[in-house]
Design a protein around this nucleic acid. Structure first.
Lengths: 209, 209
DNA sequence: TGTCATTTTAAACGCATGTTTTAAAAAATA
DNA sequence: TATTTTTTAAAACATGCGTTTAAAATGACA
């Protein structure tokens, strides 16, 4: 395995666990068993490493997800919100074949990228992968045409929060669920539990405040 | 104003804006116009300062919030989920009378405390203010008795994720909303937008997977 | 095999962090 | 007022950070 990949593989786990700022290059290179300077040699800087990491996942996910959303938009005149959100499941879980715990790691990284760094990664994602957001918004709009653009904006962010927050503590939650309810759950199980929740949330009646 | 208060007032703003790790004691003491060593003298450490900060808010909020939830449980035989979540609004907004932008600052700090630090504040809150969670779960159970304990567990966690994630990025979101839609939103506006969402999410039909 | 470019290595740089120390100043107490 | 306690002040400390440097090792290719 080449040095670049070793760094990426070690970095994604640490970043997902502890966040970008709380993870040092020394930890990463130590776990990856490469020299400290290798990060700056191969990626230029820590910031560029983070970008490369997200790119590796997004390049994998984006085409699959976009085509899944396009399919929903083409096949159904007026999809249900459950159908829209279910379109995420298979593409997201396909990341598990790509990398071990890929789904969980990616969602955690996504969450970190929103809260940790002051929005530079947010910009990176939205400008480089507009197809995801566009097709998603379109699908939601078709499923619930009465929702205004603002409503969609806010409710999609709430949904993002639900997914990201849940995934970042999935390990602990799965343990609790098993201890307290004797219920065995895995990442896929959690995703299937989230869908009715977010579908109902996005589909909530429009409130007149 | 005494040194302790000056530090707390300066710290809460910086912490809410940038997170705990990204804010240095030198920034805080500079803004507060006190000596650098004052933090460690008065609070012992940065960690204790953060705890003191959360305590100042939670001591203010907790009794009001608990009594608001108790009122819902006592006054209505079977409250709606909207009623349950609406019970949070007034207590939260009352923090604005307590400190300028108190609601926003507190919610952002709460969000930071879940994602930034590795759960020590999470423990601090749940162990020191159990009345909030207990009364909340009771209210949800009365509003939707068909929900199993597992379902409540998962859905309340999703709800927490929605709130926490949204609040920790409220600043950025409000800016985007204004730029993209020319829509001026404040914290109260965000809270009122969240309520229908989480109420519908928790109230979603029980899915048989 | 010798030459050149690429990659790895160890060390150091400059800087920022939380914390501690030591002494002076202020406030409280008697 | 004299003495003790609390608070401020400036400086230094120890540590960890991202990054850079310069030499050594490795690889590709004529």
């Amino acid at each position: 395995m080449d040095t670049k990949t070793k760094i990426l593989n070690a970095a994604e786990i640490l970043f997902a666990e502890k966040g970008f700022t709380a993870t040092s290059l020394r930890e990463i290179t130590s776990d990856a068993e490469v020299n400290l300077a290798a990060v700056n040699y191969h990626f230029g800087s820590k910031k560029e490493l983070i970008k490369a990491l997200m790119k590796r996942y997004l390049d994998q996910l984006s085409p699959v997800l976009v085509s899944s959303l396009v399919k929903v938009n083409e096949q159904t005149q007026k999809p249900t919100l459950e159908q829209v959100f279910t379109a995420f499941v298979e593409p997201l879980l396909s990341l598990n074949a790509y990398r071990q715990n890929g789904t969980s790691i990616f969602l955690q990284l996504l969450g970190r990228s929103y809260t940790d760094s002051q929005g530079f990664l947010r910009w990176f994602i939205t400008t480089n992968y507009p197809g995801i957001i566009d097709n998603f918004v379109t699908a939601v709009h078709r499923a619930y045409p009465e929702l205004s653009t603002e409503d969609i904006f806010w409710r999609l962010h709430f949904t993002m929060g639900t997914a990201v927050f849940t995934m970042s503590s999935t390990g602990a939650l799965i343990d609790i669920a098993e201890n307290d309810f004797g219920e065995k759950v895995d990442v896929a199980g959690v995703i299937y539990r989230i869908i009715p929740y977010v579908a109902a949330g996005v589909g909530a009646p429009i409130s007149r405040v």
